[in-house]
């Protein structure tokens, strides 16, 4: 029960951070900051993928409806959620995942987080910009946007975890 409350608070917090703050920041040269995949990433490992897809559908649609993007965020987030179990299986730690422990940067280590979250975030960003631009002759522009946005989004996700997740809370 406690977990449910934590995750619903996180849902609204990340919605507000993404839609009202980060979507208003403009750095230039097509950089966009997206941290909402972190919410899907931190959901429990044992959660069934059907729930995962439904939650990401709802989160994506609510971000889309606030920033007039008509479903691009939803589509990218759905692919993120669909690939999450596959990537988790690919980079499984030596003793497997503990179902009680949350999969954040403190419990599973910095290197695992870079590998796992980095791959997923790359797929998410690539999908997002491909759908947004949707033209094969602007492929170079897509890649420029992807490779400029990923480092900043990734650093922001790490920062959010250091700010809002208590290290001692985990057992």
């Amino acid at each position: 029960m406690n977990l449910l409350i934590i995750h619903s608070i996180r849902f609204f917090a990340i919605l507000i951070i993404q839609a009202l703050i980060l979507n208003q920041i403009e750095i230039g040269s097509g950089i966009q900051l997206m941290v909402y995949p972190l919410f899907i990433f931190l959901l429990p490992v044992e959660l069934s993928i059907i729930y995962l897809l439904s939650i990401s559908f709802i989160l994506g649609l609510s971000i889309d409806s606030i920033c007039n993007t008509y479903g691009i965020h939803t589509s990218a987030l759905l692919s993120f959620a669909y690939l999450r179990p596959i990537i988790f299986k690919l980079f499984i730690p030596r003793d497997g995942y503990d179902p009680i422990v949350e999969t954040n940067i403190f419990t599973l280590g910095f290197r695992w987080f870079i590998k796992c979250f980095g791959t997923l975030l790359f797929i998410h960003h690539l999908w997002f910009f491909l759908v947004e631009i949707f033209k094969i002759n602007e492929l170079f522009f897509v890649l420029q946007k992807v490779f400029l946005s990923i480092p900043i989004s990734f650093l922001l996700c790490i920062l959010l975890q250091f700010l809002f997740i208590k290290k001692s809370n985990e057992i």
Binding site: G60, Y70, G71, S75, Y82, V131
Partner: peptide, 26 residues
């Protein structure tokens, strides 16, 4: 997954061409 993606893409392309509904925009 394919069903949800299909819904999303149909929303995306129908909004780009002619806006029919308001409840998913600002």
């Amino acid at each position: 997954f394919a069903l949800l993606q299909g819904i999303t893409f149909s929303i995306y392309f129908s909004y780009l061409q002619f806006p029919k509904y308001q409840y998913l925009t600002s």
